[in-house]
Write a protein that binds this DNA or RNA. Sequence first.
DNA 1: GCCGTTTTCGGCCCGACTGTTTTCAGTCG
Length: 575
Amino acid sequence: MTRETLAGTLEEIALLLELKGENPFKIRAYRQGAEAVLNYDGDIVAKATADDLKDIKGIGEALREKLHELASTGVLKFHQDLRSQFPEGLFELFDVQGLGPKKVKALHESLGIGSIADLKQACEAGKVAELAGFGAKTQVKILEALALRESFADRFLLGMVTPVVETILETLRQHPDVSRSAVAGSYRRAKETVHDLDFLVATKEPAQVCKDFTLLPEVKSIIACGETKASVRLNDGIQCDLRAVSNEQFPFALQYFSGSKEHNVALRSLALKQGLSLNEYGFTGDTSELPPIHEEKDIYAALGLDYIAPEMRENRGEIEAAAENQLPKLIELENLRGTFHSHTTASDGHHTLEEMAEEAIDLGLQYLGISDHSKSSPQANGLNEQRLMAQIKEIAELNKGYEKFRLLAGSEVDILKDGSLDFDDELLMQLDFCVASVHGVFNLSEDEMTRRICRAMENEHVTMLGHVTGRVLLKREPYQVDHARIIDCAAETRTIIELNCSPKRMDMDWRWWKRARDKGVLCSINPDAHSIARLHHIGLGVRMAKKGWLRRQDVFNTRPLEDVLKFLATPKSKR
DNA sequence: GCCGTTTTCGGCCCGACTGTTTTCAGTCG
């Protein structure tokens, strides 16, 4: 039983209850329960098994009992009974744009549709258009949505959409009728993957700006275009929304559309307690005492809160912290002094030691850690002992030519199946630092994988742990690890954990960093760069670190070179 | 189904857009 299973079951119940047309607030309670399970800071599975789920906000009497039954027996009768009333494939219908519970229910009850394949067939036969509440246009839209679903993924990597976001923002900025513009939504919150892009403008000509937005060269098709809102699909498949508001409304709209939904719900209920109602256009209710609102921070201030950075707006305690002046002072990109974990042509990188060093210097860094693969990764042209020794010498030679910069000699050494390392200690001692990572044998049990990784961290020469779960976002599932145990082990062994900020990894996940921080575990923001361009991903890494509530002092590579060298020369037990 | 410095009962965020309607339901964010 895992935390994800518990939360997933509650989510599924919510969906099933929607299909049954249950009370929407009950449905929401299940969703919020799922969220509470995911966010709970502790061993929720053990607590559910022991029926010890007291005082968790969002989990009341009924959910407590259900979670206990599920955790202790592996199944939940309530859930199974609900499930048996609908066909398996019905769930995938919810992924089709434009289909919600009511329509899915109607399709199922009237036409017996229980899968995507059924739906496609019924549309092509013209049966869907004949249903009450449906029509010819709806049928066409469903067919389009199905085609879209086949050709594109519905989520995109944060790092991959950055260029198109910058381009569109720039165009909006230059529009003669636009006074302010911004990107909002999950992009602004730095979620590792985004479903769509949300843009916002302040203008006196909303309808015109909306229309012009749909004419951008990046636009493939128009989903909707109204007086104040437009929705389009871009050439690369991502959906892109624009909201046009007045200058006075802009901060409210920016706050609102930045989300998250959970953060906003919490913020609004806080407002309600103060006799205020908050929407995307402003405050209503007793506004006589309110100061003027010019920007987002004025909204938070009006509610008695410190300004909350967008990355933190996930309703994971930030509102409470803001009310008590307890928000952390988050790390900024300019705090970084260097970075670790980069590859060169020696293994599977695209640039030489010198080229990587030049780029790091251009980025204003004082040091760059080189960590090519080790010999057990032949697919990545991993270095054997001789080649690594040669690289150490080469780095020493190059360092003679730099005045205020230093290449650090390291290795991304494979953690073998039993937790031993690909190089012996004598060789590891020759290095400035060592990143230990799992690159093969992914199919171990959670316990075995966790022990394997912990054993590696116990090695005196392992400076940091590389990509904790090995996930490749949107592509490969993480290998199973017990994050809590790994964090505890890192704290005990004084091993740094890497925040691998390659856009496809973002590993360790942001949801775990606050816990690691509180246990005194240091983070290193590492690009895992295989080319000079990818060194720039440290910027994304900083945003992800903010999402994990990390401060400057929590991140190892904010330290200047001198301090880093001193740290690396100190035995782990004394760090 | 959850929750409580208005409440142990009665609320629970709310507006834009579309399509099918003829005044509104459904979906989305």
